[in-house]
Design a protein around this nucleic acid. Sequence first.
DNA 1: CTCATAGTTTGATAGGAGTCGAACTTACGG
DNA 2: CCGTAAGTTCGACTCCTATCAAACTATGAG
Lengths: 100, 100
Amino acid sequence: MKHYTHPDLSDVTLNTAMQALADPARVAILQAVDRSESGEIACNEIPLELSKATVSHHFETLRAAGLIETRVVGTKCLSSLRRKEYEERFPGLLDLVLQA
Amino acid sequence: MKHYTHPDLSDVTLNTAMQALADPARVAILQAVDRSESGEIACNEIPLELSKATVSHHFETLRAAGLIETRVVGTKCLSSLRRKEYEERFPGLLDLVLQA
DNA sequence: CTCATAGTTTGATAGGAGTCGAACTTACGG
DNA sequence: CCGTAAGTTCGACTCCTATCAAACTATGAG
């Protein structure tokens, strides 16, 4: 379907991270992924009343900020948190937003 | 000159905090305050090439996000970090941006 | 009192970001 | 092979934000 690119976290600046986390919709997505059974979630499983286009855009932003990684499964694409790597890059930050 | 209002940190949302920290100029201001000798800094002592109006606006944003507090001394207004309170409200967050 | 200094306020402007509908692409299922 | 479902891309629109110049306010210095 598409090959997603995931940045090396050493290339992600604090500013990029902050901008990605400065939108309530994106934080809600991260929390939804966190609370999901499998740790993975598809775009259309997001508990937000937003259009497909908008959700897709938010996922792209989160991906570019190194917060999530996405793999293709059939017609779906499942996203999960890059929890461990992110903790090393920005200690405490991800937990802060997940527990908000 | 003016009476500055400082929010109760329990009223500051994570989103407000993130938005305030999502601008490089504001992070630079926080770092400048942090690195200052006295722990306080005036608007015109900021190492940024921005107009007075813009700097004033950034200080207001930081104040509204509970990151700094400002006191009036003569014609100057000196701002300092609300370090301890912020650490209680959003553990690790301020240190993260100061050390970036 | 007068002037210079520090910040704020007020428009005004330009750029960016979130949003959507619609068209497109890819994959699975019958 | 055709239809449906999941995401992406594109173009357009709106709103928010960073920015500045200029006018204003208030304080201290001479």
